[in-house]
């Protein structure tokens, strides 16, 4: 147990000391913020206002709360995955620099090392994403607060679950990476691509129907929708209180990915949790399997 704690501590320290790695992990969230500041915020706002039926009066606080909720949920959905991948890149750089050789000659079990990478990635990602939640809540408090305590708890739960998903997924993919080139390639694809795939830059509902159906096979989509639902729960509740027709609220939920559909079947919140948690369990199982079945490293 002491070895596991010591190795986890080492991995966490290295992530925060490696400024390059740390800032790389924040590239996608930063891009999203820049896009939001330059035009995405306006697009969200205009699109929301345009979807309102004529004669319906919508307060600025409600509009701001909706737009902020979209931004925060996008940021969190992206960060949980990209930060986890970058943090977990340590297991690859240990192979590249030869540090893993130094571990291989000791009596420590491979499983202990694997768990230490997993725990360190989970902890570092949670530190960053919880910080993002905190900053996001402060921002929402300024622009338009409609949350209750349960909403906040559920957002934290979603972030935790999605972070576990990102950590488990990155543990499998990074396990097979062995060179700096592979690491850079995967890092670039994840940083650049995940924002689009999860609908952070543009809601999935605005994609073509074919692509929407493909994205529904990705477990991350369900995690993103969970965060969207709970980040926007307050404003959606407020809309109902303010007398918005039910079908209008449902259309808004459709347009911002709170409602997602698997071949026209609407997915409930419970199913979303089931898919994400089930996937995490499956990924952890695969992790254990590849670590158990892998042979000794070949060192020429």
């Amino acid at each position: 147990m002491n070895t596991l704690l010591s190795m986890t501590k080492r991995n966490i320290k290295l992530f925060f000391k490696d400024k390059g790695m740390f800032f790389t992990s924040l590239i996608t969230p930063i891009i999203l913020l820049v896009l939001y500041a330059t035009f995405l915020g306006k697009v969200y706002r205009d699109s929301f206002a345009a979807s309102m039926p004529d004669g319906l009066i919508v307060s600025d606080a409600l509009i701001n709360g909706t737009v902020s909720g979209q931004l925060i949920s996008s940021l969190l959905a992206v960060s949980c995955i990209t930060v986890a991948f970058c943090s977990n890149f340590l297991m690859v750089s240990d192979k590249v620099t030869g540090v893993s050789r130094d571990f291989a000659i000791t009596p420590v079990k491979k499983s202990t090392l694997s768990i230490s990478y997993f725990l360190a990635t989970l902890i570092t990602t949670l530190i960053i994403t919880y910080s993002a939640v905190l900053i996001g809540l402060v921002y929402i408090a300024i622009t338009g607060w409609f949350y209750n305590v349960i909403d906040v708890i559920l957002i934290l739960l979603d972030v935790t679950i999605l972070t576990m998903f990102g950590t488990a997924l990155s543990s499998i993919i990074n396990y097979f990476l062995k060179s700096q080139g592979q690491l850079s390639a995967v890092g670039t694809v994840i940083s650049a691509g995940y924002g689009f795939v999860c609908g952070a830059y543009m809601p999935i509902s605005q994609f073509g129907i074919g692509l929407q159906r493909v994205l529904m096979f990705l477990p991350g989509t369900y995690g993103t929708s969970l965060i969207r639902n709970h980040s926007l729960a307050g404003v959606l509740r407020q809309m109902t209180i303010e007398g918005f027709p039910v079908d209008v609220v449902e259309k808004i939920k459709d347009s911002i990915d709170c409602n997602i559909y698997f071949f026209d079947n609407k997915i409930g919140i419970g199913v979303m949790y089931g898919v994400v948690i089930g996937t995490i369990a499956l990924l952890l199982g695969i992790n254990i399997l590849i670590n158990t079945l892998s042979k000794k490293r070949k060192i020429s």
Partner: peptide, 12 residues
């Protein structure tokens, strides 16, 4: 050195 020592169960 603390990290490498822990790999041999040497801690504290």
């Amino acid at each position: 050195l603390l990290c490498r020592a822990s790999l041999y169960g040497i801690t504290g």
